[in-house]
Design a protein around this nucleic acid. Structure first.
Lengths: 290, 290
DNA sequence: CACGGGATAGAACGTATATTCCCTAAATTC
DNA sequence: GAATTTAGGGAATATACGTTCTATCCCGTG
């Protein structure tokens, strides 16, 4: 216990800690590592990679076990520590161990910290908790309401489509953009409806039964979305709706709709469930098309 | 693959036990401890209480440090281990260390377990499960890693900012767009960096210390993001990073970064955690500004 | 091609740690 | 109340570990 090494306090703390966000020793270590990484010899780079990849091993292992895993000599490990400003390996390991300790401490008290209901103005942790719960709730609801057959039908329809039109305004717009991003990456032809205001109908002048559309709309359903949805149905475009109730105005005649309940927190809808479902559709269509 | 357990089973357990039938060493240890607890001598009871209360100390400490903390003699610690069926203290400690190791691997391999090796096409429900699990895992990881003080510091910085610059390319772009949408709704001045390719730097020619920036980047960090991040730092723009490791190249000198691990499924990253955190930041800043 | 400097590997050293043994104290039984 | 058994404390011992030193190798340089 009696570690009489002075443990060079300045070793890691001489970095600009300007403001309230104090750099943890662990972060400071990595900061230093990044700075000197470029000029490091081969074996030390090997070690640098290893310690960033397996920080837990560093905390729990011994010099020789790490040396073995990283493919270097034990003495190199010590040299690595000294190069980074520690008095020896043990000093460096202490940083990694403290991180493990700390991590589990925050894990322990986070519940009490987050659920503080003492009427104080909303602090960050409370707001986070709200969004977190909303997302979890939405995901759970999605999982329990999802009907596999419907999902399969939706995938089949989309897979057969020539071009997939995407419709979702206001709060659903970010989800649509995300879907568009996914489809682009998967090289699936698609088109967002309504990027330019007022020109929405022009987006699907050529659309027909050979295509398909995904429509997202949650209460209160944007009137413009309903309009555009009806225009799509009028053109006999097969529509897959993602909405939150059987009474929704965007449920297609085919009955092909997927139930998604987005819990909201302070008026902001967590789009977690929509994002997951939309990812599923994109990946499944890509898979189906091969 | 014997794992077709519905995910809500695993959702609430603290430790990702491989299976209900196959107890982890750590759980087995506690089971044994409970059985023999009643007939234990005084000092050993003292130790039993200590190891259940502070398992991390057992994993990280030495015989004498534990003896000191528990108020017994070092030799008693060894006797304790032997009484519980270990060959010595080190054997017992190994169990506690393995537990620490396992804790942090949880989400890594779980999703990949869904990748079917038999070459069969994945059906919709399977794909959905993958994305669903990835999202849940990301959210859980976010909750356990989030440091409330850091979050507060980030909110404070953003609240004080004149204009908030948003940076995140490729896979992070959808999240940035979503954040932009939120900020627009909340009437908070902001600017996305890099909407037009090649003209990114022009987006922040007027940026300075009075502003702030949010940078999203996950492995493998897009080189262009790193470049732009450095340019921001060079202009002394306070940067808040959302990234996945202390070794990330986009961690600002201020140390103001938030840890986010996005589990991915089939190469697609669930952005669930990022979305939740980004919503939190937007709402908290709005709240702070009143 | 020769030389010098630094990086690396391997071995030797000293220390800290777990372990073991033994003695003392306490408790239980005859 | 004495003897025997069991728990606990303390010190000695063995081992594993980090550290340091030195010889060798590689790479760059004159």
């Amino acid at each position: 216990m009696g570690r009489d090494i002075p443990m060079d306090e300045t070793a890691l703390t001489d970095f600009p800690n300007d403001d309230a966000s104090e750099l943890s020793d662990f972060d400071a270590f990595h900061h230093r590592l990044r700075l000197s990484y470029a000029g490091l010899p081969r074996r030390l780079v090997q070690l640098a990679d290893f310690v960033t990849r397996e920080p837990d091993e560093v905390a729990l292992g011994t010099v020789s076990s790490l040396a073995h895993q990283a493919g270097v000599q034990p003495s190199t490990v010590v040299r690595f520590a000294r190069t980074l400003g520690f008095s020896g390996f043990s000093d460096m390991q202490a940083v990694f161990r403290d991180r493990l300790r700390l991590r589990n401490v925050t894990y322990k008290d986070r519940v009490s910290a987050l659920h503080r209901g003492d009427g104080q103005p909303l602090e960050g942790a409370t707001i986070f908790n709200g969004f977190f719960e909303a997302a979890m709730e939405s995901l759970r609801a999605l999982q329990s309401h999802l009907i596999p057959e419907r999902l399969e039908a939706a995938i089949a329809t989309l897979s057969a489509a020539d071009c997939i039109y995407l419709l979702g305004l206001r709060r659903s717009m970010p989800v649509i953009r995300y879907l568009s991003y996914l489809l682009a990456k998967l090289d699936i032809r698609h088109q967002i409806i309504g990027l330019e205001t007022g020109m929405e109908e022009e987006s699907f002048t050529h659309a027909g039964p050979q295509d398909a559309a995904i429509v997202l709309s949650y209460t209160a359903y944007a009137p413009r979305t309903i309009e555009l949805f009806r225009a799509l149905e009028a053109r006999s475009v097969p529509v897959i709706a993602m909405t939150d109730s059987a009474a929704s105005p965007v449920i297609p005649a085919s009955g092909l709709w997927l139930e998604v309940h987005e819990a909201d927190f302070q008026g902001f809808r967590s789009n977690a469930a929509s994002m997951v479902l939309v990812s599923t559709l994109a990946a499944a269509v890509a898979e189906r098309r091969g």
